[in-house]
Design a protein around this nucleic acid. Structure first.
Lengths: 346, 346
DNA sequence: ATGAAAGCGCTAACAG
DNA sequence: CTGTTAGCGCTTTCAT
């Protein structure tokens, strides 16, 4: 025989306790606490009072097992360190706040193996949905998600094949459009400054789109500079100093994100350079920060909050409908190129 | 009789399936999959193969209910919008990554009522611990946490009474020390610039500590300016312009956070003001950003990552020991005042 | 409107 | 080293 040792040091309050305290069956107590089914006002009050009195907190683990309903949404992102993903989270939170769903965050550090582990962990909670950054995963991770029966929304990127639904911008197009704007304004000796991140597929796609347009116009990048770690603003400053020392003839600097771009902008202004006359600058992301700089950096908004919201809406609708109505498979959001003050007129 | 309608559209893979596929009992399969107990190498392999073959993902809901062990840690923070809390999360993640624990985030928007709801939701998952920002909660929330039997770590602040454990800095002291440094350097006409947030208790405590030192030295604040919403950098710029217009004789500006301080610094430099000669500046938080500014803003590090780590370590140790060994009740971290380049010599 | 019974998928405890 | 049994606390289903 198997008898449970209920740990004496802590007796967890159960529905049964509320039932006994109120003189109402467990079932009815459950109904009251979940606002489900018809219950007389009198009973409802007896139950509510007893529950409050005891300080009863329902056990969602048991509830989830019995009902096969888990109000958690897994959110799997590469990093928390650069405000991009926290902003996605804000969009997700805003939408989920109006539902019974709760986000659970997992961080992958841009490591495919870690992503696989995190996805496995998440799926083992049978969540109401999974929101995963990016379209690139290990084969095993892909398979797990495909077979999970859980709605999967891949976010940030739409350049590739989604498992279920994708919400994001096209980074290839973002890179292309930025290059187009730059060339249109007559800049020709272009330098690229970015992060040393072979696994940041979105940065890579922007770069590819950017380079493709240069190539189509008979140009190539005149210089490249990469960094890793440290204060992005400080690194932007440093890298800009380096690249301009090595290539004083550059007339444009394209930064893979606004933070390093902001550092570069501050550097150029302090050095007394003519921005955007002699040298133009552009970044990527459209962070809030650029509104406070001496000049507004040209950039392309990555629509982070919007993406988070759209992804959460798909999951929320799916959770509501329980698979009875189909959802959008591909939501491409079109970011607007913001000229700012660091590009000369066309 | 009560028969379950297992939803036909999706048959969830269970231990039983792995058991049948491998010809090993459910119990032994469970042992293999959890790496628990002695299992022969031959059996282990049979099980692993079957599990992998089927693509079995364990159901943690059921596991948690049976074992009374939930590897989730609730993290309850006011906001994700200013990099402070994401950095706390990074500290937490870093520590929990080495354990089986997973963080679950809840955001309160600085609203006590919402905090109460989020705490209730979290506790209903019977997590291995709760990390909550701040020491101020509604009575109901406090009671819930006290009676939960779950280790509770209140973070960011140590000025007050903790429910269980507190990890943070003293904001009163931070305010006091900043004021002391400023006065020591001869600044006397001091303005304060902050957020309009009556519920941000930590900002309030810094303000109180700061003002107390002024008072002890026979001074009062010469001016105050508050904002809400928008780009912090831009707002810092704007507020600084305003306060200096209204009070041109100010010789010091104390900002409630580094972002608005950075905006103010950029403004002062562009206006050609003598920083730190004629006017000194200081912020709070010690964000990474200030390393990339033209001048480094004086500030006090709020030790966010460190706090996250320490809090997570308490929970991790507690989860390991299951209440058999006591944990630290109060961990005060002492931030260092960083002089930067915006304070003149004493 | 309320209650009784069965069992969600897993693991603790015990028995071999 | 492996298997059997009895639940974990709740909700579904059916009966009243």
């Amino acid at each position: 025989m198997a008898e449970r040792s209920s740990p004496d040091y802590r007796h967890q309050l159960t529905l049964r306790d509320v039932s006994e305290a109120s003189g109402v069956s467990e079932m009815t107590v459950s109904r009251v606490l979940r606002n489900r089914g018809e219950v007389s006002e009198k009973t409802r009050e007896k139950v509510m009072n007893a529950a409050r009195q005891l300080g009863y907190v329902p056990n969602k683990i048991a509830g989830a097992l019995a009902s096969n309903r888990v109000n958690l949404v897994g959110v799997i992102i590469p990093s928390l360190s650069n405000m991009v993903f926290p902003e996605v989270m804000m969009g997700i939170s805003k939408v989920l706040d109006a539902t019974p769903l709760q986000p659970v965050v997992g961080v992958t550090d841009y490591l495919p193996e870690k992503e696989e582990t995190v996805i496995f962990e998440m799926l083992s909670w049978r969540p109401s949905g999974l929101i995963v950054a990016g379209l690139e995963h290990t084969d095993a991770a892909r398979r797990m998600m495909e077979n999970s029966g859980v709605p999967i929304v891949e976010i940030m990127d739409v350049d590739g094949n989604a498992i279920d639904a994708a919400v994001g911008i096209s980074h290839v197009r973002a890179g292309r459009e930025t290059a187009t704007e730059i060339l249109k304004r007559g800049y020709r000796k272009i330098g690229f400054l970015g992060t040393k991140m072979p696994l940041d597929h979105r940065a890579r796609k922007r770069f590819e789109g950017f380079e493709a347009v240069l190539k189509e116009n008979g140009l190539t990048l005149a210089a490249e500079e990469y960094y890793s770690g440290g204060s992005a603003l400080g690194k932007g400053r440093e890298m800009t100093a380096n690249i301009l020392k090595a290539h004083p003839d550059l007339d444009f600097l394209y930064y893979s994100n606004d933070m390093i771009g902001a550092g570069g902008l501050l550097y150029c202004l302090e050095a007394g350079m003519d921005v955007p006359g002699k040298i133009g600058l552009a970044g990527f992301n459209g962070v809030d920060l650029i509104d406070g700089l001496p000049r507004r950096l040209a950039t392309m908004d990555s629509c982070r909050v919007e993406i988070g919201k759209a992804a959460a809406e798909i999951i929320a609708a799916e959770a509501e409908a329980r698979g009875t109505s189909p959802h959008a498979k591909r939501t491409e959001i079109s970011p607007i190129f913001a000229t700012g003050d660091t590009l000369r007129d066309a």
